[in-house]
Nucleic acid binder design. Structure first.
Lengths: 235, 235
DNA sequence: ACAAAAGTGTTGAGAGTACACCCATGC
DNA sequence: GCATGGGTGTACTCTCAACACTTTTGT
């Protein structure tokens, strides 16, 4: 049945799937890459952890639905966050109750933007290290795997990682964030020289005292174009 | 309303959106990058061109729905084609009839795999050059833009482009395909030397006669890992 | 012999990487 | 002074990109 031939076809008389948006929320807490999960209270998968999400309302776009879910769970507003559509999961049997198609998003939130409730350890909301995850409801392990892959990929060729830091930060803190997410050590000198070339940060007048020499504070330049040419397979 | 709290929430009593899959089918015909469009016969957007697609059935996955649509329009089977989920479009007013959420896919099909009907110029099915498109129904211009961007991007760092060629091909034909899609001239020597390093093709015994020296035939190596490390923003 | 297209090699510029060294502060 | 972490420079290697060159066919 083609959409193009459907004037005489009244779709409303047929079964329609439910559509939800689920948001994989990442943040850096306690020097670990963590993800926000919610404990289910009801069948199915009762008492298991799940990615926050909910039904898309008839009058809101998918992005709006995702922002709404994100705000409900973390208290962050649109401008404070990086949100990107990830993938749409639609296996017929992924939810035993009914056909549910889930448009998954992933979000990067700076720890200092989280509201107290989301940052606290309520029994039904918890931040888990991505290296120490509990069993997850539905196919949410698949969604989380996918989100983590995309986050790492994104970080390697864009400046999205800045969304995980407070507005002012030192270069060491920035490098730490990258190392935590990518799971590798980076060279200090090379990290900084490349950063200088790409013009994505600007130095501020302030300093932050550390164990040794105080570190200059920087901030992200809003107008910076922070995408790098990819190395191509074929020239 | 959270999915997690929805045991007592019977979603079926609420309105649900319709969900469709639309497939942007690319092929190389007459040495041009072309896309398959279908002429609408009914309101809305009557007599305008549109990307082929249709409703997702309750017992099929999104991928299956996309494959089914693709087969209906082109006659190609699963194994002959590259198909990838693109993005999900869900603005509330994108279809004036009812709320429709569309999971868009893009496909690469070799011209020699197309069945005669799809390859012919029936009045309601037509291959358009991506540089000479008619006005499109719904938000299909946006979908097509997005698909083209992703196709080019994909081609630059994977070997997906092979799906657009017949099984046996010369290196010149491969380079032509890349030039057509990317819209730029490539250097013959560099193209070939990089290809040699990456081990994605193997030479066959046959030759194809051309205007000058005959060209050796090659085929794509199924087992080849054809993804390249991207150049990273930060080292 | 010459045109046309296949196919290979060379070379300078710039990017990537490892590592050494200097600087400013607290104790 | 010296430990600690911030900050910079250098030198070697590898990739990129332009272009010149050789090879094999048809006419």
């Amino acid at each position: 049945m083609n959409q193009q031939q459907s004037q005489s076809y009244d779709a409303s008389q047929f079964d329609r799937p439910s559509v939800t948006t689920d948001v994989v929320v990442f943040s850096i807490l306690d020097e670990m890459l963590k993800v926000l999960l919610i404990k289910r209270k009801v069948w199915p998968y009762e008492d298991m952890w799940a990615i926050p999400g909910g039904f898309v309302q008839m009058d809101e776009s998918l992005d709006e639905a995702a922002y709404r879910e994100l705000a409900e769970e973390t208290g962050v507003t649109d401008s404070d966050v990086y949100l990107e559509q990830l993938y749409t999961f639609g296996e017929p049997d992924r939810d035993p109750r009914t056909r549910v198609i889930t448009v998954a998003y992933f979000a990067l939130v700076s720890a200092d933007k989280l509201n107290p409730k989301a940052a606290s350890d309520a029994s039904d909301v918890h931040w888990f290290s991505v290296y120490d995850l509990p069993p997850l409801a539905f196919d949410h392990d698949k969604i989380l795997d996918y989100a983590l892959k995309r986050l790492r990929y994104k970080l390697e060729y864009t400046a999205a990682g800045f969304q995980l830091l407070p507005e002012k930060f030192t270069l060491r803190e920035l490098q730490d964030a990258y190392e935590i997410i990518l799971g590798t050590k980076l060279d200090k000198g090379n990290f900084r020289s490349k950063l200088r070339k790409t013009d994505v940060v600007e130095s501020l007048s302030g300093y932050r005292s550390t164990g040794g020499r105080p570190a200059r504070l920087y901030r992200f330049r809003e107008d910076a174009v922070a995408e790098i040419k990819t190395r191509r397979l074929f020239p």
